[in-house]
Design a protein around this nucleic acid. Sequence first.
DNA 1: AGTGAAAAGTATAACCA
DNA 2: TGGTTATACTTTTCACT
Lengths: 159, 159
Amino acid sequence: MSIELDKFDRRILAILQADARRPAETIGAQIGLSASAVQRRLARLRQEGVITAEVAIVDPVQAGRPLTVIADVEVERERPELQLRLKQWIAAEPAIQEAWYVTGEGDYVLIVAVRDVQAYEALMHKLMVENANVLRFRTRVALGTLKRGLAVPMDPPAA
Amino acid sequence: MSIELDKFDRRILAILQADARRPAETIGAQIGLSASAVQRRLARLRQEGVITAEVAIVDPVQAGRPLTVIADVEVERERPELQLRLKQWIAAEPAIQEAWYVTGEGDYVLIVAVRDVQAYEALMHKLMVENANVLRFRTRVALGTLKRGLAVPMDPPAA
DNA sequence: AGTGAAAAGTATAACCA
DNA sequence: TGGTTATACTTTTCACT
């Protein structure tokens, strides 16, 4: 069951999704609450898993992984045990930043951060060799990143 | 030109990409540096834009946006001014979390966080109506999220 | 660059309305 | 739940190696 998020919670989350370092006192001043009320809500939001993590975002270019690739991977669907193995393989591969299982012909969509095309090819070769159920994949290279983030829009409270 | 990141910088970044709240003293203990050395490096990494932001990650389900959709949008390429307009449209739409311009037939790939299929359809209808250069799009719904993050793997230093 | 110590700023926790 | 206060912790600044 999901937790009720009121107007204050939502405003706190909206602010923290842009800047997790903002002090509770500053947030409180913005939304009309005392610093400790903000802290109490913050502790609750972490505790209940509404906030799943607070992380630093690193520039991929400066970190030496300037190339983003979107890979559509098609797999045989009739092998549940190989599917599990593939999921574990994906989870263990740090170059894969995001991965979804999507509607369509047994497809996974992967977002991959690599140094160059060669590194991507090596990664996908390894993927194919180590996962027999992977039939083929399609590669699209990001020519430009327009937007990058995990922020979820905060709608007005339902209640 | 990119900044040199030594072994310590990389270890700090690796830690902070998983947990931005970790105190400098704890990080220092892990990597064999004093708290103030860690703080000084941290300030430099922020200053130079290696760390672009520190953000809270919010659970989309609890925030009321349980549905992730991957949209491949095909546009007419012969209209640079409409391309700019589309980019601005994407930038201004909070439901679009990520967007890349990719190799292929004038395609954008969008990652969209919505409440339900209806909200997605309404969004894409609006996209088409307000951007005349959008020819068509393909929709894939995420049936499962295997991995979600923006963490960049920290390779050993080149130097 | 790194260390260590004082000062300033934040978070945490206890208590009252 | 929200506010206030006291305490503990963290970051910031500075003097020194």
